[in-house]
Design a protein around this nucleic acid. Structure first.
Ligand code: FES
Ligand code: FES
Lengths: 145, 145
DNA sequence: AAAGTAAAAGAGTTTTTAATCTTTTATTTT
DNA sequence: AAAATAAAAGATTAAAAACTCTTTTACTTT
């Protein structure tokens, strides 16, 4: 809807990793793919990118897997979105004009800007560990079935 | 950003047509393509769809072209978006869960719903003729340069 | 040191979206 | 009726996004 499919998977995967990291354990790609119901090799690729950008951490070898360390506790969903989809959601014009500006605005510029800012604020306020409790309690879901 | 590129072109084209229709004239594909700075054969395809769905009108032959009749004056941008991108923007889950519901919500469901509803309201309030004046006055733009 | 585990890296495929080209049909003007 | 005009229809191509597979590298356990 707002994000690319890749980005949707990324967010769900990171929330899953954050949740399990709280219990102090690392999770492998297989488990993540099952946990968020996504294609395994695809999510592997995506996590590679996030890991390289140090938004999440990874360890190779036995007992390895993905996790989030102390320093990544305040990674936000805005960081994930920016890493995967770039900044077009935050700065792009809703009607596709090549640069959004109030100097040469599209007819919906003002309205779009309000909505866009609201979305940006939401994503910036959403740290990846913030949803751990409600996920644990089954109050919200990152998987279909 | 929110819409597919096809949909962005569609909106800009329809606003252009509405603007010129006010002057009582029909506009050809060539003129539209120049007026909104879009690939000519591509916009032709898009307008075919909108015309078939009767969101805009068209006439073949000399002095033909695209226009909006009285009955289409209250076509809204929501109608255009729905015709091109479907309803995923209005009902889809922001994290890609196959159905968005408050019964089994994703962690951001509440926030997404607010933003989505705001966007939907904006688009539903935006009739295609509503921007004619400001476009005429050069207060807003549907073209880059 | 050897064996096993798990992610990283890179190459490759499929599907979807974006864009183009060609032919046909309808309409109008002469 | 003929010629010209402009959209409709349909087939095709190109590019981007989504997804898969294979090999390599790093690490851990025995
Ligand atoms: S110019 Fe279109 S959203 Fe700002
Ligand atoms: S369930 Fe995700 S937006 Fe409603």
């Amino acid at each position: 809807m707002f994000f690319s499919k890749t980005c949707e998977y990324a967010i769900r995967a990171v929330l899953y990793i954050a949740q399990k990291s709280e219990e102090g354990r690392k999770v492998g790609i297989r488990e993540i793919a099952v946990g968020i119901d996504s294609p395994e090799p695809f999510i592997a690729k995506i996590l590679q990118v996030l890991s390289k950008k140090n938004l999440i951490q990874s360890a190779k070898g036995p007992n390895g897997g993905f996790y989030v360390d102390k320093g990544s506790r305040d990674t936000t969903l805005a960081d994930i979105v920016e890493a995967i989809d770039g900044d077009r959601l935050f700065v792009g014009c809703g009607l596709g004009l090549s640069n959004c500006s109030s100097a040469k605005p599209c007819p919906l510029h003002t309205e779009f800007q309000v909505i866009r800012d609201k979305l940006a604020a939401t994503l910036r306020a959403a740290t990846i560990i913030r949803f751990n409790d409600e996920l644990n309690l089954g109050l919200s879901y990152i998987k279909e079935r």
